[in-house]
Nucleic acid binder design. Structure first.
Lengths: 248, 248
DNA sequence: TAAAAAACCGCAAATTGTTGCATAATTTCC
DNA sequence: GGAAATTATGCAACAATTTGCGGTTTTTTA
């Protein structure tokens, strides 16, 4: 069997099954695993497949979430960085959805080993890209606008979790009304998340400070940490600091 | 044997077998390998064949080899269309992941009103784009390679569902071993899905027919409908038809 | 953290390619 | 028809590619 022929066969197998093992290929084509590895390397170099330990994956399979245009990405990245710094090895983390959370997911250090619970489809997708993170999706009916699981099933599942940290992206927050939102179902879920975690971390860009919406999620006193892109000493944050919130 | 004659013979062999070895040609025409090589070079220069180390390949073979991005999209779309046609208003549908399933999600008619249960993050994402579909995500630990929820929690949730149809994308299938896969956890989930639905619909491109992998999902007799891009009367499908599977 | 699996590295053997050249076959032109 | 020129073929020495193997390092997994 010619080299190209062999590589074509490998490509076919990868496309067909989305993944192949070097050992399987080796026995089915009857060449040494070294040869297979070399083929896999060549195919990977030309970008035809993705090589992984023990075999290879199809390229087209994963990645179809393209990062759309996100509002205020830079600010959100600053926020996300501060948030990511709070996560330590071995922690159980509960997170919602929202663009800030997604940014944080992308910024998690490669070697972080932690367990993430989430109700958000995009967040779960991002966490799943990470090599060392364990991802648990809390399923239920999916709210289309936000791609988040909502409903009694999800809430009761969340209540069974004892997480170290809960990261919340929010719609609106002000010192008087606390966190507010405009979707009943989502508020229920966020409520449950806050209760299920030892500490609640709110991540938001400063624009959302001092705005409010119709439905209350929780009061300021329920928030443990507030992260914005601002300097922690900024006056805008004073009212929260006075309510015992840690500002980062 | 004349030079032209020889080259014509080589061309025929190439188009016949998609590939030839210099050594084989040399012995079968009884000329030195040098001559063969020179012929091969000439044929390659005029673009009639693709010369590679040790022999040559047919042009068509090579175009297949170069086809990079998404494997067999057209076939998958044909499969997906046939599958989508089975879904009627008001149905409860249970689906896995896989590119064929994703294609089907994109082809669902705008006005379809149905409820979709799924364990696949990409599939849930696609369903959530649809205006009239209700999406329920069956959550649990996320298997990273396939972006699918696996584990006891997901399985027990699936068992509580009574779906009309279960759409399965597969890795390998043959009449003898039935559906086979290479990931234990995913097999467990697929098993539960098959049991939870009144009818099981398997969607696959024909290339996966008559291939098999290590772990068995179910036998042919557990499949109700098999959809491929082929004509339903195609002989390749006979063994399945004989086992009582409806072929579309 | 230790055992197992996989990847990597260098090397040697086998195969394949290339080049120059001698010889044989074919064509051309007188 | 026959000599010269052209082309084709085979041979041999050498270069390049491919492949498998042993030993070592890295990664994975329990």
């Amino acid at each position: 069997m010619l080299k190209k022929e062999r590589q074509a066969y490998i490509l076919r197998q990868v496309s067909l099954h989305n993944s192949v093992l070097s050992a399987d290929l080796s026995t089915s084509i009857n060449v040494s695993e070294d040869t297979i590895r070399r083929d896999l390397n060549e195919l990977a170099e030309t970008g035809k497949i993705i090589k992984v330990h023990g075999g290879a994956l199809s390229k087209s399979f994963n990645s179809f979430y393209l990062r759309g245009d996100v509002y205020n990405v830079d600010s959100k990245k600053m926020v996300a960085e501060k948030g990511a710094a709070l996560i330590k090895d071995g922690m159980f983390i509960l997170t919602g959805g929202g663009t800030t959370i997604i940014e944080m997911a992308r910024l998690l250090p490669e070697n972080l080993k932690a367990t993430f619970f989430t109700v958000s489809i995009p967040a779960a997708y991002e966490y799943a890209q990470h090599p060392n993170i364990e991802v648990i999706f809390i399923g239920d009916k999916i709210a289309k606008k936000s791609q988040i699981a909502v409903g009694g099933e999800a809430i009761s599942k969340i209540k069974h979790i004892k997480a170290d940290l809960c990261f919340l992206g929010i719609n609106a927050i002000d010192p008087e009304h606390g966190i507010t939102d405009n979707d009943w179902d989502i508020v229920q879920v966020k409520n449950a998340m806050i209760e299920a975690a030892a500490k609640t971390v709110v991540m938001t860009i400063s624009e959302k400070l001092n705005s409010s919406q119709r439905i209350r999620v929780c009061g300021v006193q329920d928030i443990d940490v507030l992260i914005t892109e601002l300097d922690p000493e900024n006056n805008l944050l004073d009212p929260f600091r006075l309510n015992g919130v840690t500002i980062l």
